[in-house]
Amino acid sequence: MTGGAADAPGPGSAGAQAAVLARYDELASLLGGMDDRPGADPGLTAEAAPVLLHEARLLDAGRFEDWLAGWTSDAVLWLPLSARAHPGTDQSLLLDDRRRLAERVDWRREPSAWGQNPPSRTTRVVGSIEAWAAADGLVARSSFLIDEYRHGRHQALAGYQIHELVGDDLRRRTKILVVPALGTGVRNPSFLL
């Protein structure tokens, strides 16, 4: 075996692998290109804001099933470890597809999931919202501060999030959370969504 992509999987599966890599590239360029974007579109920004704030409220309230319903079938939630990361070459904290998001919601309801029992109580502050037009919807960037309280202690993490919202109802197709503190060592980060 010579290694590498030249190891010639069959034509059908090669296409399947290419689709995975294309989605990964899409995620990396959405993240990597964010700082080059021009000023936001005011109308789309106004449209994105209530969607982002609603999501933050659902998560803080622990309404994970309702939150899950707002994703597309080809959804990806990605928490890279840096703003220069690529999902196909760098470790991530998580990269969930729609199936895994559903498992994650089940996990949050599982009494023996000790990392979230007792559950984290979170407060998110979402601000600095900007949005731009994208195929079939919009791309939004916003900053967040999330305070977590658990076992009598709290920790606060700040970062920014990128949403790709699609369709008439602006469902989440992509969400990327960038949390710089992940690069220095945080306590049990399983509350981050």
Binding site: D7, L21, Q91, L95, A113, G115
Partner: peptide, 29 residues
């Protein structure tokens, strides 16, 4: 590095599995 590229692509997702659904238990214990 000597394996087909799918192996490392899978490894990235495989190791997230325990980090997300097992390691939090250990940290809590």
């Amino acid at each position: 590095p000597g394996a087909p590229s799918e192996i490392d692509l899978l490894r990235l997702r495989v190791d997230e599995d325990f980090v997300n659904f097992g390691t939090p238990d250990d940290l809590d214990m």
